[in-house]
Design a protein around this nucleic acid. Sequence first.
DNA 1: ATAGCCAGTTACGTTACCGTAAGCGGGTCA
DNA 2: TGACCCGCTTACGGTAACGTAACTGGCTAT
Lengths: 123, 123
Amino acid sequence: MSDTEQLPAWCPGDGWCSITATASLVGKKWHPVIIHRLLHHGPLGFNALQEEVDGISSKVLSESLDDLEEKRVVSRTIVSEKPVRVEYALTELGESLEPVVTALAEWGEQHLEPVDEEAASVV
Amino acid sequence: MSDTEQLPAWCPGDGWCSITATASLVGKKWHPVIIHRLLHHGPLGFNALQEEVDGISSKVLSESLDDLEEKRVVSRTIVSEKPVRVEYALTELGESLEPVVTALAEWGEQHLEPVDEEAASVV
DNA sequence: ATAGCCAGTTACGTTACCGTAAGCGGGTCA
DNA sequence: TGACCCGCTTACGGTAACGTAACTGGCTAT
């Protein structure tokens, strides 16, 4: 590490930061899980997705989907069959997040699973 | 995608989720940036780190470092020279986050930079 | 003694995010 | 017609995260 080290441009000093920007997309509690489920289960309806995510409320799921749709990560397709169906799927942009979500998942797998937060130090 | 598809175990239905767990570490606004700076600039003092991160306040930096220290991601070393110095560095666990932070950074680089949020749709 | 750097802390306020509970409009099925 | 599924929305509340501003305390250099 010398003094004149050039940073890879993705850490500028002028406001924008690719890390923060990406984190604001994937850093919400449910966002990465939703994306992961969509990656591995193809298009899903609202209720199916809710069951898939396990723990999320309809309200939060709805909000998250709105957010992700606005950010062009998921697409909402109304399938006009008799019972009005809706299908949520990843856009290309959303699918491109696969490495990111995978990185999150694998790191958690490898470094976080043997969690002993309460058994660790205090008391 | 068949029906009996086995998920890689890192997306259980029973509460714990490696993705969410990791996101709770790296998903905060400043956490990944701090880690990134520490990855690329070696150990830094408080003020040096604050200047490096650019935009963070001393309070938030302090809080973030407390959090990251508690989670064994960064270490705080008091270098007891005459002017009391402190050095923040990554632990092994912290360094292992490199792929995750890199994934965030690179995705942002490749998919988010040409941002035209305001120029896009409305008005 | 005054000024300045380093490493924070405290007080205070705002916004974002998450969660519960309930309800609603439309359709299907019996 | 009533019971039930689907796809949400609304109302309400709490906590956590973030932000600003000011201030502290130890040490140093002048």
